[in-house]
Nucleic acid binder design. Structure first.
Lengths: 151, 151
DNA sequence: TTTAAAAGCGATATGGTTGTCTTTTATGCG
DNA sequence: CGCATAAAAGACAACCATATCGCTTTTAAA
């Protein structure tokens, strides 16, 4: 975290891949268990569980405890823009505050990188606001599963 | 480093501000000490020292030990693109490897975000390759000093 | 009503970045 | 040469994101 790193946090990656996986393998109503998701994505189970949990709390997925429980998609899942997931895992600070983390930085007293980064930053924000989970599911499903499974 | 966080690492921020400060306050040949830089930028002295050290090793600044020693600019300082500093502090991996850190991701087997991010990522890389320290020094110097000092 | 399966949750480890402190090395000056 | 000064270098501490573990809660099914 910690950078205009051109990476996403692991949390975000896990959340995104988790949601995509659930959306891919379960039809409306069906459930998938964290054990299966974690195994398929080759991701730490408990850590993934916590992240999925937050995704559920925000309403992007459903979950049920108990036997035959698990995670399932709901009405919001497919239409959720990526920015919603990013907000859950990483927060929105990154789009608001100074890229050098200088508190005084603003339009009138910009840091040396302020205007240089503004365009890139807004482009990314736009991208993530308009792209939904459904958009990511448009490509060939077999390829998609393969691309998010393992590493 | 760990995210398409819209932030830079502290190391990069310190390096950039340090170089700008040296370039601003010392004419060709003059020297500034780490104590002064750290004080003005309100940044941990020893940590800054180490980063400046690497910047010197890469040839972007000069340094001399001993009395009247300190850091000074050289022929390369002003013409260095920002990407050179970023390579020193954060490395270039962030522009090369998958944004979700999936090793298998490539043009033929792209991860769900591959093409979505490609444009943003390349734009940023271009920006950082063409913008030099000199470019950042073009604005009003008093404003500039103020913007990098404190936080 | 009991049992077992599955998510939820808090406490604890791990690793990399950031930050501090001390010692070493180089340099200018008397 | 020897001393004072400042960067360089290395050892160690703090912190945060990531990861793990064990226990609790919920719930379907027998």
């Amino acid at each position: 975290m910690v950078c205009l790193q051109m990476f996403f946090s692991k949390s975000f990656g896990y959340a995104l891949r988790g949601v995509i996986y659930v959306a891919l393998v379960c039809e409306e109503g069906q459930r998938v268990q964290v054990d299966e998701i974690a195994a398929k994505l080759a991701v730490p189970k408990h850590f993934l569980g916590k992240i999925m949990n937050r995704v559920v709390k925000e309403g992007i997925l459903n979950s049920t405890k108990g036997p035959y429980g698990g995670f399932s998609i709901n009405e919001e899942t497919l239409s959720s823009p990526l920015i919603r997931l990013l907000r859950i895992t990483d927060g929105m600070e990154q789009f608001k505050s100074c890229v050098l983390k200088l508190r005084k930085c603003n339009k009138d007293k910009p840091c040396p990188l302020h205007y240089l980064m503004e365009i890139n930053r807004n482009d990314l924000l736009k991208n993530f606001s308009k792209t939904t989970i459904a958009d990511l599911l448009k490509q060939d499903k077999k390829m998609l599963i393969e691309s998010i499974a393992t590493f």
